[in-house]
Design a protein around this nucleic acid. Structure first.
Lengths: 200, 200
DNA sequence: ATGTTACGGTACCGACCAGTCCCACACGAT
DNA sequence: ATCGTGTGGGACTGGTCGGTACCGTAACAT
């Protein structure tokens, strides 16, 4: 009775090559359970493949972690692209769009915070291959935010971008421990205030 | 020649009872290497004692983690006490004092961020004994910050306290990845701006 | 002197870890 | 038909993990 035509989870993604399935599984498990809390066997199992295939493609757990974060960084970057595209000549609205994007991400159920921040907490070794991915992503994000602040004509764009970064990161952290309520609205309000504060 | 009178690290703290030495070792190792990255054997070694003694006192690694965080929370609380005492009838200065306190903590070399946030990233299990310690601490800190905002006569103290919390948490996160410069000054500036923004 | 207690030391357990190896099978190209 | 390649399956290694049990001893109270 279990072998009906209804495709199970493993079969739904069975059409993708093993490499993509492994990355999907890593995405899900690393984010929800933590990197060190997930063994490569568990990743291979959820991907419907084996450890051998995993090591054939990535060579190392650390490399898999780095590649996973690289994909997440690309997703963030394309979200930024969409925001810049949508409010093409209104940098102020772009900044608000970024804040709204983060606020939306907060409502994801059982939110575990920013994958980069969590990974940073789990990987204290500065030579870990994932570290440069994280730092590059954060630096790039700050650069884009700074460019938006420049475009918005803010008096001190670097300062404003830094403060907005604090707000966004802080909101993602605060949503993990349930102390602060209505985090989404409040981070948007704070970013708005920062824009107004530095505005022309 | 190695058994001179110069006391080694183990002897410097040898006067403290084993329980305190274990907690000191846990503090150091858990914070710098991460909870899951440190074995109980390593904690016992650095404490100059044995795993047996560690388990006699704490029963479980998880319990040791919880007790460590309890101590850190108490240290934060007493720092808040000192700040409230120092600017006894100037709540606005108290808030700035909190921001300066956090900013000072950022300059600690090889800063690994807030132990509570890092632990949260490492302990996704909501039933972990350390989780309630973390949540209680964060809630308490927000409550005290809100009280300061009330005392300062801010228009919307809950909102202001939440935004200040975002700023402080975000600064601690941002200092881990070196993307943002001058984090200390900037978080103080942001908190100042929030006060002014909500102020009467 | 005697008993109690906490201590340091160590051997040990079962479980899990990252990583390796070999095998049988399905496929596509020639 | 044959070959090479990537695959899923599983056994295996060496090491580390959290946690337990046992022992001899030093400190202290009585």
């Amino acid at each position: 009775m279990t072998d009906t035509v209804r495709p199970g989870r493993a079969e739904r993604v069975a059409k993708l090559p093993p490499r993509e399935r492994i990355l999907d599984a890593a995405e899900e498990l690393f984010h929800s359970e933590g990197i060190r809390g997930v063994g490569v066997q568990a990743v291979a199992d959820r991907a419907g493949t084996t450890k051998a295939a995993l090591y054939r493609h990535f060579g190392t757990k650390d490399a898999l972690v780095a590649e996973w974060l690289l994909i997440v960084a690309a997703e963030y970057a394309s979200a930024f692209d969409g925001i810049e595209e949508r409010w093409r000549d209104d940098p102020r609205a772009q900044i608000r769009g970024v804040a709204a994007f983060v606020a939306d991400g907060l409502s994801a159920l059982s939110h575990r915070g920013c994958p980069f921040v969590n990974s940073l907490a789990e990987l204290p070794d500065p030579s870990h291959p994932a570290r440069q991915v994280i730092e590059a992503h954060k630096a790039r994000q700050l650069r884009r935010l700074t460019a938006m602040c420049v475009g918005a004509g803010l008096a001190d764009p670097e300062e404003a971008a830094a403060e907005i970064t604090f707000a966004l990161e802080g909101a993602q952290v605060s949503v993990q421990n349930g102390s602060v309520a209505r985090v989404g609205e409040r981070v948007v309000a704070l970013v708005d205030a920062v824009i107004a504060w530095h505005g022309p």
